[in-house]
Amino acid sequence: MCLVLEPWAAIILAGGRGSRLGGVDKAGIELGGRTLLEWALDAVIDAREVVVVGTPVPTERPVTFVRENPRYGGPVAGMLTGLDALQRMPAYVGVVAVDMPHLNHGTWRRLLDAAAGTDGARLVGPDGHWQLALALATARLQQVRPDYEGQHDHPLKALLAQLDLTPVLAQGREHEDIDTWEDLRDS
């Protein structure tokens, strides 16, 4: 049962350079006959609104596409650009990298449950490292929001260090992302 009863929105970060993949657009990479963007959209099926920060492509689900400002500015620029593109500001926003195909709606329910009444929650792998799958209280995020205009690579860790985020242990392969061709092969 999801404790966050209010509608939530999702921001899918899909505007990276894919440097370790030779510059390939990760959102369009196929796994099991579906693109990574399609996997990400399925995972956030319960979100009231979805913003994809990246190159616009046709999708079955209505989404808003935006480009981060500055372009290739990193996850903070992408997250805040996505937040600004929401039509209605929800109490909570899910932020996820497009390259995490093993997330599902159950992952988001656990993250949102853990975030209820707090600054938010983050997915943590079995090795203790956190992943770019976050459920954040938007009011608190706005309080710690940096002035990122024109900045590249504002440190995500520095932004998140200002928030008290509840760790949520990944189940199965939820924590795995695809950064290299070997990661794709092993998924």
Rank of each mutant, 00 (worst) to 15 (best):
L86G: 02
V50D: 03
T64L: 13
A121H: 05
D42V: 03
M100W: 00
Q162H: 06
R110L: 13
P155F: 06
G73V: 06
V50R: 01
N104P: 06
A121K: 00
Y92V: 03
L132Q: 08
W8M: 04
V57I: 14
Y72W: 14
V66P: 08
L31H: 03
G74K: 02
V44D: 09
Q142P: 02
A121E: 05
L132R: 08
R48M: 07
D183N: 12
L5G: 14
T138Q: 08
G128M: 11
L103S: 07
L156I: 09
A40Q: 11
T107C: 14
G33E: 13
R71W: 15
I29F: 01
G150T: 10
E38W: 02
V95S: 07
D84K: 15
R122K: 13
I29L: 15
E49V: 06
V66T: 13
L5Y: 11
L141T: 07
T107E: 02
L134Q: 06
M89C: 12
P58G: 02
P126G: 07
F65C: 12
Q162A: 13
G54F: 00
V63C: 09
V50C: 10
R122M: 15
W181A: 10
A170V: 05
D177K: 09
G94H: 04
W8G: 07
G78A: 15
A116N: 15
E182F: 01
T138W: 06
L160K: 06
A121C: 02
L31D: 01
G16V: 11
L103Y: 05
I12P: 04
L112F: 01
R67T: 14
E174G: 00
L80K: 05
D99F: 01
D153Y: 12
P126V: 08
V144Y: 11
P155T: 05
Q171L: 09
V93T: 09
T118V: 12
E6F: 10
V4D: 02
Y148H: 14
R173T: 08
L156M: 12
Y148G: 00
E174D: 01
W181H: 06
G22Y: 13
I29W: 01
L41S: 07
A161Q: 11
V50F: 05
R173A: 12
G82T: 07
R17I: 11
G28N: 11
R71V: 10
R185E: 07
D147M: 12
G74D: 03
I29T: 04
V96R: 02
P62W: 05
L13S: 03
V76N: 01
